[in-house]
Design a binder for these strands. Structure first.
Lengths: 241, 241
DNA sequence: CGTATTGTTGAGCGTAGTCAAAGTTAGTGG
DNA sequence: CCACTAACTTTGACTACGCTCAACAATACG
């Protein structure tokens, strides 16, 4: 059982795309779950592991990431409350990347069989889940462009636009000017930059009034300004935000 | 109707993962299709378009790509014969990226409804298709790492490893030492580099005996060598290769 | 209050980008 | 078959964005 409050962000996001029946919602709420807490930086999933179950993020922020042979971390995407962190694992044989907590996080762990069951009896739910995995894919594509073809200032701006838009769309933030709980190393690893250069670029964005900076977090002050800097267009989110 | 020969690469790839019944294969072969030819550089799909149908690549090479506001192209992945170029479009409302022919290409265009029908009556086919979209996602993740955290030499080596491995796995190449029909601009756009720097890096790889170069194509001479250079591991392909 | 983590700053360097021009190759049409 | 052209490749000179290394400062937290 998952309590209604915890499911709000998920339903809010899904209903931007299509209607869910109350039976569908109840089926989700009735899923057999185990709650688990993870401290900051803990691994929820490790690359190479055979997937056992599937986790819905209830609180906090997590990321997908890989670590190269030379030890560099590349963050591949972020999860916020209401996101499934490893839905793809229900079908794939082994995890191809790590999932790591950015802030302290709480998840609802759901057995693979229960997911299979709910998608079988509630096709709309299965469809919404498949759509989620397709949107993940679209987000990855946009990140390839971000890291491959934009400079440091644009990359960071783009990232901040995406996160604040998604937080607002899930109802986790009142407005587009939100507080993001990320340290500078996280931003560096998400944008393919070093921590030092990220620090300098963030200072430039603050100087220009686009963001505010504080310890382990930053505030989006001028979303439209960041949107211009990052050449941001929300198409790739497919109304997930 | 698609002739058996044209379906070989698709089936060969799918059967690395799981068995298909002969009914499943026949259902695929019996799909109502329209064959279409595209010249080099033509667009098969344009970003923003509402998806009408779905295309299976029969011959040639195509790529997913996006063009930034400043006009830079970023290639997101390559398709080879036997790949569906826009399976995700069957569910998403509008294309989030372009699909462009790298070489002259021939595709089998399949109506969305026919895809929906075959997945309904042949769950194993639906599963294989969903798996394909999940593997696409995994490939995108690896590309984020490639572009975000590797230097020019490693990026190019990694790309060449992926392509030659996939060509061999599909039966389109006898060995891992295959000819790749790509010009240097394509390689640059796939790795987030400029054409000039790509040219210089390719020369270095040729000097070291890893590849051969010719006009609009290159030959993989030392796959293991490239594998080392590119920190390549095939896990992310999930036995699609 | 001490310590680990995170953030900041400076100096120097190097990988990759930019601009420009010349050289090649394949294709086209005369 | 050859001249012409467009696309592609190669080379050089110069630039710059972002990286590395290193030291120090600030913050949180036990």
């Amino acid at each position: 059982m998952i309590d209604a409050d915890a499911l709000k962000p998920l339903f809010r996001r899904w209903e931007k795309r299509s209607e869910l029946s109350s039976a569908d919602r109840e089926a989700i709420a009735a899923l057999p779950v185990t709650r688990r807490q993870f401290p900051r930086n803990a691994y929820l999933v490790r690359e190479g592991e055979p997937p056992r179950e599937c986790a819905l993020l209830l609180r906090g922020t997590t990321c997908r990431q890989k670590v190269t042979v030379r030890g560099a971390r590349q963050i591949l995407s972020f999860h916020i409350a209401g996101d499934f962190v490893d839905l793809h694992n229900c079908l794939l044989g082994e995890a191809d990347h790590n999932v790591q907590a950015i802030t302290g996080a709480e998840v609802a762990v759901i057995p693979k069989a229960a997911i299979a069951d709910v998608t079988l009896h509630h096709p709309a739910v299965g469809r919404a889940m498949w759509l989620d995995t397709l949107i993940d894919s679209s987000v990855h594509r946009e990140w390839v462009v971000n890291v491959g073809r934009r400079n440091a200032r644009s990359r960071i701006s783009h990232l901040l636009c995406e996160l604040s838009l998604r937080l607002q769309a899930s109802g986790l933030s009142e407005s587009l000017s939100c507080e993001l709980q990320l340290n500078q190393q996280d931003i560096a690893d998400a944008t393919g930059l070093t921590d030092v250069h990220t620090n300098r670029t963030l200072h430039a964005l603050r100087r220009d009034g686009l963001i505010g900076l504080s310890f382990r977090s930053l505030k989006v002050l001028d979303w439209q300004g960041l949107r211009n800097e990052g050449e941001f267009s929300e198409r790739y989110l497919h109304h997930a935000a």
